[in-house]
Simulated assay, not measured.
Amino acid sequence: MARSQQDRPPRRQEWATRTARDRTDAPARGRLLDAAEQVFARLGYGPATIADITAQAEVSRAGFYVYFASKEEVFRVLAGRVRDAFLTAQDVPGVDTDDVAAVARASTAAFIAAYARHLPLLVLLEQQARGDAEVRALWEEIRERPVRRAARYVRRVAAEGRAHPVVDPLTLSRAVGGMSIEFARLVAERPATYERAVADATAMYLHLLGIGAAPQQ
């Protein structure tokens, strides 16, 4: 069955004419990404359509194609955004990186918040990774890059004598990541538990690092 004119992506000439103007409209792209995450979380990957995303974002279908070629592409861009959110969670701006306890608390708090916020999309990513090699690569990055980055920090502070890990840094980072995910799932169900979850996860992190617990806030 032929697609209607409304369902067809814009012709290349039309797209090229709009590109210079519309790609400067970063808020529209951000709205589309936010809307796509909400739509995927609500409907699931298969049932979600570009029409659902554009309606949620209040952006035209032609506007969608300025930024994304397909539903598959917007999903992969979302996966990359989630990966970046977890890496950013380890940047802990404003925290003295020589203060290991402060870094542990700030990074744990940011990780739990990011995971709880993106939990529905993360569930979909794990499902889609089983049948899509590109999504699988992104999923592996989401799981592994934050762990390996944390392990590098643990190695550094251990070498400087400011921490005394009870296990090797990579194992420690995997353990901390795993328990932070479990706390994040609890927080997603019961947001009021966030502060307690952060305090408990941080206390266990510091214990594994072999340093004193951070003061309770």
Rank of each mutant, 00 (worst) to 15 (best):
V77E: 15
V82S: 02
A20I: 08
A110C: 04
D25V: 02
G30A: 04
P120L: 14
T49G: 00
V95M: 07
A110I: 06
A16E: 13
D34R: 12
A110R: 02
D22V: 12
G44I: 04
G63Y: 02
R11K: 10
P93N: 05
A26K: 03
A114R: 00
R105Q: 13
G44M: 11
D98W: 04
A16M: 14
G63M: 06
F86D: 08
A51N: 05
F68P: 01
T19E: 04
E37M: 10
A79I: 01
K71W: 06
V66M: 14
D52A: 14
D22M: 15
L121N: 05
R23D: 01
G63T: 03
I112L: 07
L43N: 14
F68W: 05
F40D: 02
A85Y: 06
Y67T: 02
G80A: 08
A28W: 00
G46A: 14
D99K: 04
D7N: 14
L122N: 14
T54G: 01
L122I: 14
G44H: 12
T97N: 00
G80Y: 07
D25T: 03
A36L: 10
A101M: 07
Q56L: 05
Q56F: 05
D34E: 07
T49L: 12
A85H: 05
K71Y: 06
P93M: 04
G46I: 04
L43K: 15
A79T: 10
Q90Y: 07
R3L: 15
V59T: 12
A51F: 02
D98G: 12
D98E: 11
Q38K: 12
S70V: 11
A20G: 10
Y67E: 05
F111H: 12
S4W: 03
V103L: 00
A16F: 08
A102H: 07
K71I: 05
V39L: 11
A35R: 12
A28C: 00
E37Y: 03
Q56Y: 01
A55M: 02
Y65K: 11
Q38A: 12
P9R: 05
V66E: 13
R76I: 01
P27V: 13
Q38V: 09
E14G: 02
E58N: 12
A48L: 09
T19L: 11
E37V: 01
S107D: 09
G46C: 06
